[in-house]
Design a protein around this nucleic acid. Structure first.
Lengths: 148, 148
DNA sequence: TATTGTTATACTCTATAACTATA
DNA sequence: TATAGTTATAGAGTATAACAATA
């Protein structure tokens, strides 16, 4: 196996493990990977319509309805009337939602530090640069109309 | 944001993109990520019982029943009587299943070459080494009983 | 006429529990 | 008594299509 394929496989393996680790940390509770992703985007965007969330998450509006239903039931977000468009709702984080994200962000920082501990700054810089190139190329490959 | 968190985020981003790319390449056909994973394990293990597949995939035996049902319907695998245990079945790849995996492996090799093209051997070696360390640490974190 | 969100329907992946046939 | 696989049931994530309210 050539080095590039080996790196590719390691990348996938690391990704799967991180996903599993994330999913496991939610297990049993009302939060799941998809719902947490919505919380994350919601904090990034600020109070948003479900259409905006659907676009940000890359899923269908119908799917967002279900995710918001669950997150509203667990008091992580709440729906409010849109001030100027009576068709739309504005989804916002509750205090509990904000607390949840803050905690997750701290855990992410701690995990990153644990995983990268002992790796030299030079090596991290190399990994960062290569991963950036890979993601850029992937995005180009996946949107052929924009890449040609 | 510190460098380690940045690398962590890039790792997740690359992983998500690769997953999306994989899922998209199956879109519309009978193959999905989970079914393809089963094919992959089946080739690695050789003809296997569903129990063995469940263990290899880390899912419930009931889940394997559904995956094998679908893969049998699309002629990627077939069930046969176990020679010595009449409770069990032996799942094997059909010719079509073998062809499918061979094609996917070639595509993986091509994608890896495309993504890593132009990256120096030294840099790839660094990335490989760091990713290996990260996956090892993740595994230790996720199995505390084995790690202490 | 277009957009927002919902109801209706369906498929996939996943799980646990109960059951049948066999070991 | 234990194991292999299935049926039964359930929940989560995802999708499209049809629909009501509003723009």
């Amino acid at each position: 196996m050539t080095r590039d394929v080996q790196v590719f496989d390691r990348l996938i393996e690391a990704a799967v493990l991180i996903q599993d680790d994330l999913a496991r940390s939610f297990a049993g509770g009302p939060l799941t990977v998809a719902r947490t992703h919505l919380l994350w985007e919601l904090r990034r965007l600020g109070p948003s319509t479900q259409q905006a969330l659907a676009a940000a998450l890359g899923v269908s509006p119908r799917n967002v309805t279900g995710l918001v239903d669950a997150l509203e039931a667990s008091d992580h977000v709440h729906r409010a009337a849109h001030p100027s468009d009576r068709r739309a709702v504005l989804v916002s984080l509750t205090r509990r939602g904000v607390r949840t994200i803050t905690t997750m962000e701290r855990e992410r920082t701690e995990l990153a530090a644990q995983l990268a501990g002992g790796v030299s700054e030079e090596d991290l810089e190399v990994v960062d640069r290569v991963l950036e190139m890979i993601t850029t190329r992937l995005r180009t490959l996946m949107t052929p109309e924009a890449g040609s």
